[in-house]
């Protein structure tokens, strides 16, 4: 609580300092619009920002959901088939090292400059952390618990439902948290390269006009979308933790 207060104060001090710096003509407002100007930009173009923001939010949310679905399904498939894992996992890992976000233009080639391109790219970017979280979670089941299941003559389905899944969910949630950030990133980069609509487009357009205030206003909204989605996963995690009732193993999957 106290820590949150200190850091909130730090942010407030930073904003005030920023404002003072610009007002005091130490920094040109063209380079760094002061917070007041950003607020003004937000209020001046509500319809544009809201429209473009909704587009970005919609695509991000849909991309995130699809990424979770595909990632979890493929992760489960990889975990249940050792051969498939041996064949596919090195490629999944190889794709992890490659700067995936640079592949956005390919999606434009394939899917044009519309929403399908941005959506597909967001899914492509966000799906890996979920996949890796799922496989790591399913592989991380306590071996003793699995032995117990065998002793008790538990069936495959029972073992999955009663033991493997509860052990896997914390890692899956960690993957989903990363995916939430990644989905937004994917949509924004998609908007950069398709240059049709969305907050990413607004950022690029406004930057090219030197409208720093509008750039920062759009980025503020982007942060809002990111925090909302991440917060949603966090709430899910909280609900799960309440049911789980024990310290959960944490994980990060970039």
């Amino acid at each position: 609580m106290k820590a949150a207060l200190t850091s909130a104060l730090a942010v407030l001090a930073m904003l005030l300092g920023w404002e003072a710096l610009v007002r005091g003509k130490a920094v040109s407002p063209d380079l760094l619009a002061p917070p007041s100007a950003v607020l003004e930009a937000l209020l001046r173009h509500p319809d544009i920002l809201l429209d473009q923001g909704l587009s970005t939010a919609r695509e991000t949310a849909l991309g995130f959901l699809l990424a979770c679905l595909f990632g979890a399904a493929l992760g489960a498939a990889l975990s249940s088939a050792a051969l498939l894992r041996r064949v596919a996992m090195p490629w999944v890992l190889a794709l992890q090292i490659v700067p995936k976000m640079a592949l956005a233009p390919l999606f434009v080639v394939w899917l044009g400059v519309g929403a399908p391109c941005r959506l597909a790219f967001a899914v492509f970017i966000a799906f890996f952390p979920v996949l890796i979280g799922t496989t790591a979670g399913l592989a991380g089941t306590d071996s003793g618990a699995l032995r117990l299941c065998r002793v008790l003559g538990a069936g495959w389905w029972q073992t999955v439902l009663r033991v493997r899944l509860p052990y896997a969910v914390p890692q899956l949630l960690a993957g989903m948290k990363t995916a939430a950030t990644m989905a937004l990133l994917g949509v924004v980069i998609g908007e950069f390269v398709t240059a049709q609509q969305g907050l990413g487009y607004v950022v690029m357009f406004a930057a090219s006009l030197g409208e720093t205030a509008l750039v920062l206003a759009a980025i503020t909204l982007l942060c809002g979308i990111g925090v909302a989605l991440y917060g949603g996963v966090l709430l899910l995690e909280l609900a799960f933790a309440r049911w789980y009732g024990a310290p959960m193993p944490a994980g990060e999957f970039g």
């Binding site: 003793g144 117990l148 538990a154 009732g245």
Partner: peptide, 24 residues
């Protein structure tokens, strides 16, 4: 069967862990 570790499932209460064989 009893193992070296208790291997209780962390998300189940003591009672539910004890009843786990019945559940299965």
């Amino acid at each position: 069967v009893m193992f070296q570790d208790a291997t209780l499932l962390p998300w189940l209460s003591v009672l539910d862990n004890v009843l786990f064989p019945a559940t299965i």
